[in-house]
């Protein structure tokens, strides 16, 4: 089930960022998120996290949410995958 985390996360980002189909497939671990995408403000991040929680069936603690978590796609994917494993 963990193997679909990457696909699910790209799908969430597609919906939240309003990307064209397939555009998120070009994200690499180094693709910048918070700080790199001006539309990803704090409210958008809160929406993004809620949608991740909903679709992945995990809970994200506020303490874990900081600039590092959302610095790039790789850091977010690593965090979400670890949370799903622990769930």
């Amino acid at each position: 089930m963990q193997n679909d985390t990457d696909d699910l996360l790209r799908a969430v980002l597609t919906d939240v960022l309003g990307l064209k189909p397939g555009q998120a497939a070009g994200f690499t671990a180094q693709t910048g998120l918070f700080g790199a995408l001006p539309e990803l403000d704090s409210m958008a991040v809160a929406n993004l996290l809620a949608e991740i929680e909903d679709r992945m069936g995990i809970t994200i603690d506020d303490e874990d949410v900081d600039g590092d978590l959302l610095a790039d796609y790789g850091s977010l994917l690593g965090f979400v995958a670890a949370r799903r494993e622990a769930a």
Binding site: S42, M43, V45, A46, N47, L49, A50, D62, V65, D66, G67
Partner: peptide
């Protein structure tokens, strides 16, 4: 909860 979280993120930054 969403709105509180947005505020917490802003404060942390």
């Amino acid at each position: 909860r969403q709105m509180l979280r947005a505020r917490i993120i802003t404060a942390r930054e």
